[in-house]
């Protein structure tokens, strides 16, 4: 067992357990708390996988932003009867069975597939240039993206190089930013102060 594996198992256990607890718990506030731990565990896993920027982003954006938002929502709406909303047993069974089926499928897919047998490069997190590469990729520098086929399939010999079409991720970056703008506007509109209708009125 290398250090990698030990750390992996610890982080994985935390994350998995927390995820399960999110599902199991009836109290919405407690679910939020367990979600926090799940997200934190996930961040840890990112750091383990030498993706420090992503891990950092996870902690900042996800935990510090999204989760806070969720907690806001919980706090705003968890009044009295809404804290503990139970579901019937039949539905639990059905959902768990569906979940198990899905997990079986995914797991089988993961194990059965013949992954590439290459060793991961040993990376030193202190000296990795991941962030620089991410930045270059996001700003559209062509060399930041691999020349080979992203799908992992072997390149057919004689096919024209794809280098001409590679534009890195500039376009998705722009789209996402516009998207965020739209979301901003939309959320602001949706959450504006409205005249309160009578109780039980349909929207």
């Amino acid at each position: 067992m290398t250090l990698f594996e030990i750390l992996f198992w610890i982080a994985a256990a935390l994350t998995g357990l927390s995820a399960i607890m999110v599902v199991v718990t009836q109290n919405i506030v407690r679910a939020a708390a367990w979600l926090l731990f799940t997200l934190a565990g996930t961040a840890g896993l990112y750091f383990l996988l030498a993706s420090d920027f992503v891990g950092a982003a996870q902690l900042i954006v996800y935990v510090g932003g999204t989760l806070v938002l969720v907690v806001f929502g919980v706090m705003l709406t968890a009044q009295g009867p809404f804290v503990n909303l139970r579901t019937g047993a039949g539905e639990w069974v059905f959902s768990v069975l569906a979940g198990i089926a899905l997990y079986a499928t995914l797991a089988t897919a993961a194990w059965v597939t013949a992954w590439d047998k290459s060793e991961p490069q040993e990376q030193d997190a202190a000296r990795s240039s991941n962030i620089a590469q991410i930045g270059m990729a996001l700003t559209g520098i062509r060399e930041a993206t691999p020349e080979g086929s992203i799908t992992g399939m072997p390149i057919k010999p004689g096919s024209p190089p794809r280098s001409r079409w590679r534009t890195a991720y500039l376009l998705p970056f722009e789209i996402v930013s516009v998207h965020l703008l739209v979301v901003l506007i939309g959320a602001a509109y949706l959450a504006r102060a409205k005249r309160r209708k009578a109780e039980g009125a349909t929207p």
């Binding site: 290459s118 996001l138 993206t145």
Partner: peptide, 12 residues
């Protein structure tokens, strides 16, 4: 992380 072809695609 595990595929050397991908450099930063997964993270992006």
């Amino acid at each position: 992380y595990y595929n050397p072809t991908f450099r930063v695609e997964g993270q992006v």
